[in-house]
Nucleic acid binder design. Structure first.
Length: 260
DNA sequence: AGTTTGACCCGGACGC
DNA sequence: TGCGTCCGGGTCAAAC
């Protein structure tokens, strides 16, 4: 399940490969994940490829094409191969083909006229200049929920999912069940730094190696989660066994000693 | 209005 | 082996 770092790399590499190229006639296999009219894509030039939160956003002439991979979606850029069982649409790009699909059909592809309709509710990008300590601090004061849920709220900060939320809280030494408003000034600073540090580290390392969801990330190394999905394993700092609890229905991993 | 829960979906893990 | 059941995960809608 790709989050901000993985998508950032995917987008950057996809841009290098398809910018200024022309889309051919789309091969539609499963329209269920598509909203808007995919036939509008034919013959449009790809002007740019960007990321907005976890969205992959392709600017065309006058219209936009957007992908969200959710949990199991994928984007491959390949020479032609027969559609497989999970492909939803194949977009020809100048002799190559973007295969977009999802075995569980939760991923989405949208064709929109205005970018605003897609992104207006998204919160600030944690890697952008707009993400300041003050913004984080003010947002925390407004929220009544726990800190884990806060980090995953795309309307406040866009791009953090379950994996990096756990990793950020571990680095910041903050217990995931803590109410947002209970964090003191030092903890907010620590959280702010941890958000940036974890995301930047993951970006540098080519993201977390999960199930293959793209061929647009080549990695010789990868980000290794310290606590996420490591229930029962020793905490890398104090060797206390990592604990798993549910927060908002999501598996949440933390060290009960380091994160009080 | 803010927060929590359920639906969406289906492969894979697990149990019988 | 094979069938049935249950879980997970991000996001949105519905319920609280």
């Amino acid at each position: 399940m790709p989050e901000l770092p993985e998508l950032e790399i995917l987008v950057s590499n996809l841009r290098d490969r398809v910018k200024d190229k022309r889309l051919g006639r789309p091969i539609i296999i499963n329209p269920r994940v598509i909203s808007g009219d995919p036939n509008l894509l034919e013959d449009r030039i790809i002007k740019d490829v960007k990321r907005r939160g976890k969205w992959v956003l392709i600017s065309l002439d006058k219209i936009y094409l957007a992908f969200h991979l959710r949990l199991n979606g994928y984007i491959f850029l390949l020479e032609y191969r027969e559609p497989d069982d999970y492909d939803c649409i194949i977009l020809p790009v100048d002799g190559e083909y973007i295969h977009f699909g999802d075995p569980r059909r939760l991923a989405q592809m949208k064709i929109v006229n205005e970018i605003e309709s897609l992104i207006e509710e998204l919160g600030v990008d944690p890697l952008s200049q707009d993400f300041t300590l003050e913004y984080l601090s003010k947002s925390l004061k407004k929220k009544r929920s726990n800190i884990k849920t806060f980090l995953m709220d795309q309307d406040i900060i866009s791009g953090i999912g379950n994996t990096y939320a756990d990793e950020i809280l571990f680095l910041a030494k903050i217990n995931p069940t803590r109410p947002c408003q209970s964090l003191d000034e030092e903890e907010v600073k620590s959280l702010y730094k941890s958000i940036k540090d974890i995301l930047e580290e993951a970006l540098k390392l080519g993201g977390t190696s999960t199930e293959e969801f793209t061929n647009l990330i080549s990695r010789d190394k990868s980000f290794e989660p310290r606590v996420h999905r490591r229930e029962g394993e020793a905490c890398p700092i104090c060797e206390t066994p990592i604990v798993m609890i549910k927060i908002g229905g999501r598996g949440t991993y933390y060290c009960p000693k380091c994160q009080r």
